[in-house]
């Protein structure tokens, strides 16, 4: 069985988290936290850290076992199986949701007349190809792709700068901390999908003492990295569109905005 390196572990986790959060997060946190929503992204994601460490300690105790095997040893055969089934259902549901969202965004904003099933089929085929190629390829895939995602995001943010509206970020904390708290709660599920994913790849993690230590830093690094990038994205969307429009716009408004500026309409 192949193992993945610490760097791959970090990028894989960060890519998963980035992929699930970067598009919807602005609309979600601004909807609850208003103008200050951007501040709640990082704390919301940070909630995932202790859970991530918990998963790692499981890996430490049951090296080389998958989550299903671990839960079977811990809770006995039947409860373990039930937990496993629940886990599979939740993962399948989230994966499907993600695929559907991506397809929806593509259909709504880019190719309106193409049936959404085509995008979904394409996505499924890609995922299938990736999965049959093995965990090693999956890890390398994230390693190559994650820097590209980051560059694309930074490009989006950078190119949108000319569209910044005056003073959209102010006033800061006019509503107090309460909305921030609720917005943070809205972010937590994203961190939890990351934990789910982490549990899924548990069996492929190396089990040496040294590596586990590095994985611990890997967890908070990827959460921190994604948290910062997401905060940047939310911040930029509020700056460019104002809170009301940020909540209202469904798709990837900043990408389109950056495209317009970049190509120079």
């Amino acid at each position: 069985m192949e193992r993945i390196s610490t760097h791959q572990f970090m990028t894989l986790g960060a890519a998963v988290l980035m992929g699930t959060t970067s598009l919807p997060v602005a609309s979600i946190v601004t909807g609850v936290g208003g103008r200050d929503g951007w501040m709640s992204v990082l704390p919301g994601l940070a909630v995932g850290i202790p859970y991530g460490l918990m998963v790692l300690s499981l890996v430490e105790q049951y090296p080389g076992k998958s989550l299903l095997q671990i839960s079977e040893t811990l809770f006995g055969k039947w409860i373990g199986k039930v937990i496993g089934i629940i886990y599979i259902i939740i993962s399948g549901y989230l994966g499907g949701l993600l695929l559907g969202q991506a397809g929806d965004i593509y259909q709504v904003s880019i190719m309106t007349l193409t049936p959404i099933s085509v995008f979904e089929l394409g996505g499924i085929l890609l995922v299938f190809y990736l999965v049959t190629s093995g965990i090693e390829v999956l890890a390398r895939f994230s390693e190559v792709l994650f820097p590209l995602i980051v560059i694309a995001l930074l490009l989006n943010v950078g190119l949108s700068i000319p569209r910044i509206e005056q003073g959209e970020l102010l006033p800061i904390l006019s509503q107090g901390l309460k909305p921030l708290f609720w917005a943070g709660i809205k972010v937590v599920p994203f961190a939890m999908t990351y934990i789910l994913f982490l549990a899924g790849i548990a069996a492929f993690l190396p089990t040496g003492k040294k590596e586990l230590g590095q994985f611990k830093t890997g967890i908070w690094r990827s959460l921190l990295l994604v948290g910062i990038l997401d905060t940047l994205v939310v911040l930029m969307q509020i700056l460019v569109f104002g809170p009301a429009e940020t909540i209202r716009l469904d798709t990837d408004p900043m990408g389109i905005c950056a495209l317009e500026e970049g190509i120079g309409f």
Partner: peptide
Amino acid sequence: LGHYLTILGTE
């Protein structure tokens, strides 16, 4: 158009 909509959003 985007600016107009943002201004409308301020109410």
